[in-house]
Design a protein around this nucleic acid. Structure first.
Lengths: 248, 248
DNA sequence: CGACGAGTTGAGGAGTGTCAAAGTGAGTGG
DNA sequence: CCACTCACTTTGACACTCCTCAACTCGTCG
């Protein structure tokens, strides 16, 4: 079905954990992330150049200038990708969770800024190093290609939400997406903390803070969700939420 | 800078036109499209399985069932990618022009439908054939990866438009995008035909037909554009249009 | 304790959507 | 050649959603 994947799996049969660089052993990015398709040699090579960093909420991740340009893997926390109009109107165009890859391969700077939404940890990779490795490793390019396609699907799903849903449906859709992200299987009660402030949610949904707040209140009043502490949300019935979100 | 590209360029130095399959010689897809990175051998192999087709406006391109699943290159015309809510609300999430690639590599069917917006011609490629070639050819995967990233950028640009711009700015942004597509250099007067009906434009912008119509009328009244025949548009000053579109 | 940021709630208004009717152009058949 | 139809577009009147501005609540931290 997916030949490149099979090839990679076979390679990995012979891998002993001791071959893998210490910094990578317990790393999120090897489970589902980009580093999962790399050989021990590649990991060893790459790990010479990577830096693990904490990023505080609100700070730029991989700010411009820093090593001229770098990529990163998100290891913990949530990073928001956003775009701005010159008059200050802002739109969040994507959320990256661990172990997502961060950065735009093959340059052509898009005007996107990446900012930590929560307490975040990243593994920063100099641009030149990764670009070279991708050129030499079809498996790695394949993996990044896959992730780009997933992000494209997500972006397009969100376009439907932005363009055609009501405020109520938008907020419900957001909650539903976050809930699924923390518990993909959930059918019964689902509980989670929102990684975004009301302002961020508004920027994600193309609404104002006030409208988001009102819709949350309404969802609470209708019994679709329960809220505690502003950030802590509990969903008694995911199907009900999906229905309100316009996701049959 | 981009090693894979360089490698491909070198390969192509030795290519004689006679090596290239007849059907491919004058084909759009070799100029900027996916086929531009393929060797004569690859093209010959691929061309055994491809079918060139006309598609009428409104018909599904690569409808499901047709060869189980197929990819396609757009050779002429415009294809709209759209998503629908179960109650019929629709959102166009992308436009594909020649020589764009059409289809979702590596399965995972997304719920997108592709429909011809204008008189369209495509080169249809059976899924299995291309999947195999991509597995064997890093250059080809690189090219598709690149295109996916471009589409991702476009999708995110559009999210900003959908979420944060006014109806006026949305319509202006749409006209600006189309104008640039037909004449990327244009600084002076730019003239073009809209590939989409008002209904399609509305579905692209997350508006209603009536609002689109009113905003077009207003842009005409303000002298930003001239309209003839509903479809034929003339822009005397692209910078003025960009300004109205909220693109500084 | 007071100041501050984040969130909620309220009143009023602007911008779009909805519904309805009229205008326009292309194609058809008499 | 002209009426007729049909799809598409424009225009108008009105309603409603969501935004704006403002006040208030709550929890946190110095």
């Amino acid at each position: 079905m997916d030949e490149i994947f099979k090839r990679t799996e076979n390679q990995r049969k012979d891998i002993h954990n001791s071959d893998i660089p210490v910094v990578c052993r317990a790393c999120e990015a090897r489970h589902g992330g980009m580093c999962g398709v790399m050989t021990p040699q590649q990991l060893t090579e790459l790990s010479k150049f990577t830096t693990r960093k904490k990023v505080n909420p609100g700070s730029e991740v991989v700010g411009q200038g820093e090593q001229v340009a770098a990529y990163a893997n998100v290891l913990k926390g949530v990073v928001k990708l956003s775009k701005m109009l010159h008059d200050g109107r802002q739109q969040i165009v994507g959320l990256q969770f661990a172990p997502d890859f961060l950065g735009r391969p093959f340059s052509r700077e898009s005007t996107i800024s990446a900012e930590a939404a929560t307490e975040t940890e990243i593994c920063s990779i100099p641009k030149a190093v990764l670009d070279r490795m991708v050129g030499d490793s079809p498996e790695l390019e394949h993996k990044l290609h896959q992730q780009a396609l997933v992000e494209l699907d997500e972006a397009r799903d969100w376009m439907l939400t932005l363009g055609r849903k009501t405020a109520q449906e938008k907020v419900a859709s957001f909650l539903y997406m976050i809930a699924l992200h923390y518990d993909p299987e959930s059918t019964e009660r689902t509980v989670f903390d929102l990684p975004l402030s009301r302002a961020d949610i508004a920027d994600f949904l193309g609404l104002t803070i006030e409208t988001v707040s009102r819709q949350m209140t309404k969802l609470r009043g209708d019994g679709v969700i329960q809220i505690e502490n502003n950030r802590h949300v509990s969903v008694p019935d995911m199907e009900r939420l999906a229905e309100v979100a316009g996701i049959e």
